[in-house]
Design a protein around this nucleic acid. Structure first.
Lengths: 188, 188
DNA sequence: ACGGTGATTACAGAACCTGTAATCACCGTG
DNA sequence: CACGGTGATTACAGGTTCTGTAATCACCGT
C-alpha cells in the first residue's frame, strides 16, 4: 500500500492538469507537480515514464480494449465495421468524461511536445488494430490500410465531439464519421 | 559563410549517423556528434532544434514539395490520384539515396524516441496534404480522410521499398500501394 | 515486538537544451 | 592595406529532465 489512501497516479494527474492550465506545460516543472501532489519528483518518475506521459493515462488499456473488441467481433462482419463497432462500444467511458477531455485537449493543442506524444499513441492504436485484423484473417496490406483509415475516422469523430460536446455523444460522432468515410471511399 | 567549406549540417548528419550506427542512439551524446564533426555542442543546436532532428533533414522541404505538387495537379484529377502522382513525382530523389535511407531506417526502428519524431513528421505531411486538398476545393471531411489514407499508402510503399530495394523503385511501390488502396477501399 | 514488503525518499549525476555575450573568419569598401 | 560590418561559431552559466542506487518509511501479518 502507498502512503496516500487515494491513488497516487490520480493525484499526480490532477496536480499536473491544474498546473498546466495555470502556467502552461513548459513553465511547469516535474518537481512542482510532485510537490503539489504531496510527494517528490522521484516518485513522479516511479509512476510515469516521463513528463508527457502524465497526460496520457489509461491509453494502454484503451488500446487493449479496442484490440480485444475487434478480435471478438462476429466473424462475418466486414473489417471496417468491426473496428467501428469496437470504438463505439467503448465510447461511453469518454462521454462520461467530456469535460476532462476538453481541458486535456486544450493543453495538448498548445504544446507540440504533447501532440507528438499523442501521435505515437495513435500510431500504437493503429498497430494494435492492424494486429487484431490480421488475427481475423485479414491479410496485408488490407489490415494496415484499414487500421490507418479507422484511426483517422476515430480522430475525426473525437475532434467533432470535442468541438461541440452538446451536439451529440462520441458514439454518435463515430457513427457519422465512419459513414463519411464510406462515402469518401466510394469517390476514390 | 561558415568556418567549414562543406555544409555544416551535412557534416553533423554524417557524424551522427556514424556514431548512432557504432554505439546506438542513446549511448551517443550531442557533444560527441559535434566533436566528430569538428565543432561544439552549441553549434549543433544552432542547426538542429534537438538531438532527434538531425535524422530528419529536408523533411520540411519534402513536405512543401508534396503540397505544391498536389496543388499543381490538373483540376479534373481525382484527389487521391493527385496525391499519388505528387508522391511519385518526387520519388526519384529517394531512389538515388536508397542505401542512406536503409541505414537511417535501421537506426529509427531501434529507438522509440526517433519513431516518435517520425510519426509527427508524417502527421505534418498529412496536414499539408489536407491543406492542399482543401485549396483544390475538396471539403472536409473528405480532405482529412483522403490525406490520412494517402500517408498510410505512402508508408506502405516506403516500407516495401526498403524491405527489398532491388525489387523496384519507390515510384513502382507507390503505384502498387495506391492500387492496393483502391482495391481495399472497394471492400469497405 | 518483529521482520517482511512495497512504496517513497535522499542523493548524486549525466545529458539535453537555452540564453547571452564574446570571438572569429570573411568580405566589401575607402 | 586598414577598417568596420556581417554572420557563424564559441565560451560559459544554468535550469530541467531523467536515471541509478541505497536508505528510509508505513503498513501488515505473526
Amino acid at each position: 500500500m502507498g502512503r496516500w489512501p487515494g491513488g497516487t497516479q490520480e493525484r499526480l494527474q490532477e496536480a499536473a492538469i491544474e498546473l498546466f492550465t495555470e502556467r502552461g506545460y513548459e513553465r511547469t516543472t516535474v518537481a512542482e507537480i510532485a510537490t503539489r501532489a504531496g510527494m517528490t519528483e522521484r516518485t513522479f518518475y516511479n509512476h510515469f515514464a516521463d513528463k508527457r506521459e502524465v497526460l496520457f493515462p489509461e491509453q494502454d488499456s484503451f488500446i487493449a480494449k479496442v484490440r480485444e473488441a475487434v478480435g471478438a467481433a462476429p466473424a462475418e462482419q466486414p473489417p471496417l465495421d468491426a473496428v467501428s463497432a469496437a470504438f463505439i462500444a467503448g465510447s461511453d467511458w469518454f462521454d462520461q468524461r467530456q469535460e476532462a477531455a476538453q481541458r486535456r485537449r486544450r493543453i495538448l493543442d498548445a504544446h507540440p511536445d504533447l501532440r507528438e506524444r499523442e501521435w505515437t499513441k495513435l500510431a500504437a492504436l493503429g498497430e494494435a488494430i492492424t494486429a487484431a485484423l490480421r488475427t481475423r484473417g485479414i491479410p496485408d496490406p488490407a489490415a494496415t490500410l484499414t487500421a490507418a483509415v479507422s484511426v483517422a475516422a476515430y480522430q475525426l469523430a473525437a475532434a467533432r465531439w470535442l468541438a461541440d460536446p452538446r451536439h451529440g455523444t462520441l458514439g454518435h460522432h463515430l457513427h457519422t464519421s465512419f459513414e463519411d468515410l464510406h462515402r469518401t471511399a466510394r469517390s476514390w
